[in-house]
Amino acid sequence: MKDFQEFLENIDELNKRDRMEGILNHIKKKYPQLKEEIKWNQPMFSDHGTFIIGFSIAKGHIAVAPEAVAIRQFEEEIKGVGYSHTQELMRIKWTDEVDFELLDKMVSYNIEDKKDMTKFWRKATF
């Protein structure tokens, strides 16, 4: 898989494809400095060679992966909007509203927090 368009074309259900495309386009428009990448067959955004946020799809949800540090930072807000989460990702059910404000906070947090990083991932802290 080479790019976001190819990723989206592989989503068979149009409503799911449209929703994922809307999320990706929102981030592309709000953060044009971020690089679009496909790694491990998943769309993600990076900044100066470091991971910012990634996405994957499952039968029941979109998985949003901003790394464990960001999940901990926004855990209460994640719960407050009704999303479930693990240490590494939060889940937006296909029936949930997308909280773009929360996504923006996670992206902005990672951009700022990782501005001096030279590695792709943070060092695991759990």
Rank of each mutant, 00 (worst) to 15 (best):
F51G: 07
I53A: 04
F7S: 03
V107K: 02
A70P: 05
E13Y: 09
N10I: 12
E112G: 09
M44S: 04
I78V: 12
I71L: 10
R17V: 10
Y83C: 03
P32R: 09
A63S: 13
A65S: 11
M106E: 08
K16C: 10
F51D: 00
N41I: 12
G54C: 06
E76S: 14
W121R: 09
L103S: 04
M106C: 05
L89T: 08
K123Y: 04
M44T: 00
A65T: 06
F74H: 03
F7I: 02
K39W: 07
R91L: 03
S108A: 15
D116Q: 09
D99Y: 05
D12A: 15
E101L: 14
P32S: 13
S84V: 02
G82L: 08
Q87L: 14
R17W: 03
A63D: 01
I27D: 02
I53W: 04
I111Q: 10
P32D: 12
K35M: 14
K115L: 02
Q5K: 14
S46Q: 01
Y31W: 15
E9K: 14
V69C: 09
K93Q: 12
R122W: 04
N25K: 12
G82F: 06
D3I: 06
A65I: 09
A124K: 07
H85I: 07
H61I: 07
T95I: 13
S108H: 14
E9Y: 14
G54I: 00
I111S: 00
L24S: 06
K105F: 07
G49C: 09
L89D: 04
F45Q: 07
S46I: 08
K79I: 10
S56V: 00
W94D: 00
E76H: 13
P66V: 04
I53N: 08
T50V: 09
F126R: 07
E21T: 13
R19C: 09
F7T: 00
D3R: 05
R19S: 10
K29H: 14
S84C: 07
H85T: 02
P43R: 03
Q33S: 14
E6A: 14
R17Q: 15
F100C: 11
K115Y: 00
I38S: 09
G82P: 05
G60F: 12
G82W: 05
D113Y: 10
K28Y: 10
M90D: 08
D113C: 10
W40C: 07
T125S: 12
E97Q: 10
F126M: 07
K28R: 14
I27S: 06
A70C: 12
I57P: 03
K16G: 08
E88A: 11
E67N: 01
S46D: 09
D3G: 04
G49D: 01
K30F: 12
F100W: 11
K16M: 13
I111Y: 02
F126C: 08
A63P: 01
I38N: 02
S56F: 01
K29L: 15
I71E: 04
K39D: 09
K35A: 14
V107S: 09
F51T: 00
F4R: 06
Q42R: 04
L34P: 08
